[in-house]
Design a binder for these strands. Structure first.
Length: 295
DNA sequence: ACATAGACCTGTTGGC
DNA sequence: TGCCAACAGGTCTATG
């Protein structure tokens, strides 16, 4: 599923159930996801109290009471859901629980919490992964050391963007997807942010920087568009295309606000533009854009 | 530095 | 209706 807004939505959904809860038992239904679980993974989770749940880029980080942290990445199709005691009984289930409970094939990890709730990780493609690390060493962890700026943080603005892009000849689309530069963007929100800022995905990243290193007006527009589109998507509970659901099973609805993603052949929504949305492959990923108003 | 291709997996979709 | 190729929100590696 997951770009920053979807992961943040999952975090917000899980936090009320998970933070302050103790893990009675961690059940692994298989020995690996994208990577094998580390040795003693389930054993080390058993009995731990979850003291916090954070997000960094597209990673979830659950802090535990023994100084460890559970790191989880949802890959392309990972989802968490919560089942309470009520759900587990024979009583009528909600539509979502019904649909999901029919196919538990891809329920790979189940955290049984004290009190009876269960937090279930489901991931058909298994591109996601989980591991444990010491909280004190998270910043130095291989998953985190190379991550770039958080686009929703205070520090992210056009000047930061300009500094990151200065001198880069790589395509704007590629630069925005590079987690070492900006952490959390993915294919959908890059397409949407580029459309909002009227910039072609085929521009060179360095084009957005003036000769003196200051951000060009285009960089101002792009930084603003990134913040706006991500912020709005978080507020909307993310985008539900195939896999993404909030932890309570409800759907995000930002997909209804896409202006270009998946809209090949449709009229561009920019007022007075009159262009038509195209799809073109870039670096093996689909780019959706309007060739008329994105220059 | 940068682009491209392929790998990892499974499920869904679109075209014929 | 059925089949099969193409494609999917991510990341990593190898290669040129």
């Amino acid at each position: 599923m997951p770009e920053l807004p979807e992961v943040e939505t999952v975090r917000r959904g899980l936090a009320p159930v998970l933070v302050g809860a103790r893990i009675r038992r961690a059940e692994l239904r298989r020995s690996d996801l994208r990577f094998p679980f580390p040795p003693d993974f389930a054993k080390n989770l058993q009995g731990r109290l979850v003291t916090g749940l954070d997000r960094r880029a597209k990673y979830l980080v659950a802090r535990l009471d023994d100084g460890a942290a559970l790191i989880a990445h949802l890959g392309m199709s990972g989802a968490f859901r919560i089942e309470t005691l009520q759900d587990a009984g024979a009583a009528p289930l909600g539509a979502f629980a019904m649909a999901r409970s029919k196919d538990p094939t891809h329920d790979h990890v189940i955290l049984h919490l004290e009190g009876g709730a269960r937090v279930i990780y489901n991931d058909p493609r298994r591109f996601g992964f989980m591991t444990l690390a010491l909280e004190a060493e998270l910043e130095a962890h291989p998953f985190f050391t190379h991550l770039g700026v958080e686009p929703l943080s205070q520090g992210f603005d056009a000047r930061v963007l300009a500094r990151l892009f200065a001198g880069r000849k790589t395509l704007l689309k590629s630069a925005l997807l590079d987690q070492k530069l900006i952490a959390g963007l993915g294919n959908i929100y890059v397409c949407e942010a580029l459309h909002r800022s009227g910039l072609s995905p085929f521009r060179a990243a360095g084009d957005l920087v003036k000769a003196n290193g200051a951000p060009a007006r285009s960089a101002q527009r792009l930084a603003r568009a990134i913040r706006d589109v991500l912020g709005e998507a978080v507020e909307a509970g993310g985008s539900s295309l195939r896999d993404h659901r909030r932890a309570d099973g409800s759907l995000g609805y930002f997909q209804h606000r896409f202006q270009v993603y998946g809209r090949t052949g449709e009229a561009c929504a920019t007022p007075c533009c009159g262009g038509t949305i195209l799809r073109q492959t870039q670096n093996g990923r689909s780019s959706f854009f309007c060739p008329k108003c994105q220059r």
